[in-house]
Structure formats: C-alpha cells, structure tokens
Amino acid sequence: MKNLVIGATVLILCLGILYVGVGLEFGVPLFTDMDEYFVSHGQEQTGGNNIVTDIVFDFRGFDTLGEATVLFTAVLGAGLVFRKRGEDEEYEYE
C-alpha cells in the first residue's frame, strides 16, 4: 500500500518536474530584459568587471546580507546543539 503511494507520488512528481524539459528551451530564454540591463549597464553603474559580483554586492546586495545571515544562523545553531550544558539543564521527557 505504502509502496504504491510512494510510486504514485514519484510518478506524478516526475511528470510534473520533467515537464520543465519540454516547456522551456535551453539556450534561448524568452525574456531577457532584466539581464540585458545588467550586462549593458552594470559595468558603468558599479565599475566592476565581473557582472555576477556586481549583482551579488550591488544590485542584489540585500540577498547577500541574507545569505551571510543564514550562515551565521547555522553557526549559532551548530554551536548551540554542541554546547556544554549545565547540570540542571536536563529536562525530563517521558
């Protein structure tokens, strides 16, 4: 029963996700206006040669701040689960 459900789920998701291979065409994006802007104006607006870095730190700098925050979060989380805990800090779980 359960295997049947897993099979059906995977099958439907396969159909859904693999549709990407049909619905889009590789190498020929439909709209390119935003990226055209970056490629043609990015260098003069930021002065950086590497457009990807220009986007990462200037046009979408806030995303990078978020990404750095995620890393910080993960470090804090790992530090918390591996921390040395006090004597009375064990709670009873039944």
Binding site: K2, I6, A8, T9, I12, L13, L15, G16
Partner: peptide, 13 residues
C-alpha cells in the same frame, strides 16, 4: 516527507 510530497502530487493532479 511522503505526506508533503503526496499532497503536492494530489494538487498537481
């Protein structure tokens, strides 16, 4: 995970 993806498949359908 199976419930999550199963519901997703169902909604797909």
């Amino acid at each position: 995970v199976l419930w999550f993806l199963g519901v997703m498949a169902l909604v797909f359908v």
